[in-house]
């Protein structure tokens, strides 16, 4: 860990101005959102930026907006804490609010932004699986216009996305979900808080009210592949079926087969696979049991146990 070496910090007031700045100043520049990843990269990973373009003074990048069609737009500079505490998100997608609440500490979440988190493409990012089961898209501002892409296609490897130098991630867009959509996110890590996900599992299901049959199943996994992924092979096993513990277990097994975890100081790959199985099962059963209104930490902890 070292102290930052000299660089300039610019604070443009609009996205075009930021991109223009970047274009004019040439290579070696980095965009700064919350800084919780960038500053660590500077201190710990030998990153030496030539200059930094801070996006925090750009008003259009912040805020959470709900459209009349039910879609939700989250500005890239929206902090994790804002997502965690947003009344709109807590009501509409409590599991997304929960996934944001799993990130670091309140101090971190007051800085870390959803756009920065996605652009940094950490495989263990807590919010990514939740966004993946919501079929979220990201909007990118680049020379020649805007590009909108599914989040699933946005990540291409650890720390790698389809973004090119000079691109700015501006928005996360969550398309409308059916009225009986239910989601759940379980973070599995030994410490109760202040930990990286050893395994993160998000599920989204649409359960036919009268017959308790799954009309739509989405499963996403974090920290067990080079990028956060959808468990595309596991999902169909549950389609048009009722969510039972034994079926959930089978779906969990399939998800476990599908992921490609690594062994590291936190966990072995084999254990991560086991935990994908168990936590996918638990997440499906929790989702099937319906939303739990209580978003307290204890309630969340008890659901992941």
């Amino acid at each position: 860990m070292k102290r930052p070496e000299p660089f300039e910090v610019f604070q443009p007031a609009s996205v075009p101005e930021a991109r223009e700045f970047f274009r004019k100043n040439g290579p070696g520049g980095h965009f700064l959102a919350g800084g919780t990843d960038l500053v660590i990269a500077i201190k710990e990973k030998g990153l030496v930026p030539r200059y930094v373009v801070d996006l925090k003074k750009i008003p259009s990048l912040s805020g959470i907006r709900e459209s009349c069609d039910g879609s939700l737009t989250i500005g890239a500079l929206t902090t994790m804490r804002e997502i965690e505490t947003s009344s709109v998100i807590r009501k509409k997608y409590p599991f997304l609010a929960q996934s944001a609440a799993e990130v670091g500490s309140i101090q971190i979440r007051n800085r870390a932004t959803i756009g920065g988190n996605m652009a940094n493409a950490t495989p263990s990012a807590d919010v990514a699986p939740a966004l993946l089961v919501l079929n979220a898209k990201v909007k990118i501002s680049r020379s020649g216009g805007e590009k909108i892409v599914l989040l699933e296609e946005f990540f291409i490897g650890p720390g790698k996305t389809i973004m090119e130098p000079g691109d700015i991630l501006t928005e996360i867009v969550i398309p409308p979900t059916p009225p009986d959509f239910r989601g759940e996110y379980i973070k599995f890590s030994p410490r109760e808080m202040m930990d990286l996900a050893y395994v993160g599992v998000a599920v989204g299901v649409v359960v036919d009210g009268s017959r308790k049959i799954c009309r739509d199943v989405r499963i996403a996994l974090g920290a067990v592949s080079p990028t956060p992924i959808r468990a595309r092979k596991a999902e169909p096993l549950m389609l048009n079926q009722g969510i039972t513990p034994s079926l959930a277990e089978r779906v969990g097994e399939e998800a476990s087969n599908e992921c490609k975890p690594i062994s590291d100081v936190r966990s072995s790959a084999a254990y991560r696979k086991e935990m994908v199985r168990v936590n996918t099962k638990r997440a499906l059963l929790n989702a099937a049991a319906g939303y739990v209104e209580n978003l307290s930490w204890t309630a969340r902890r008890d659901r992941r146990y």
Partner: peptide
Amino acid sequence: VRNSSFLDYHLVTSLD
């Protein structure tokens, strides 16, 4: 040493 940080060397938190 593979975990020479408070991120990977886990002291208990208030919630633990």
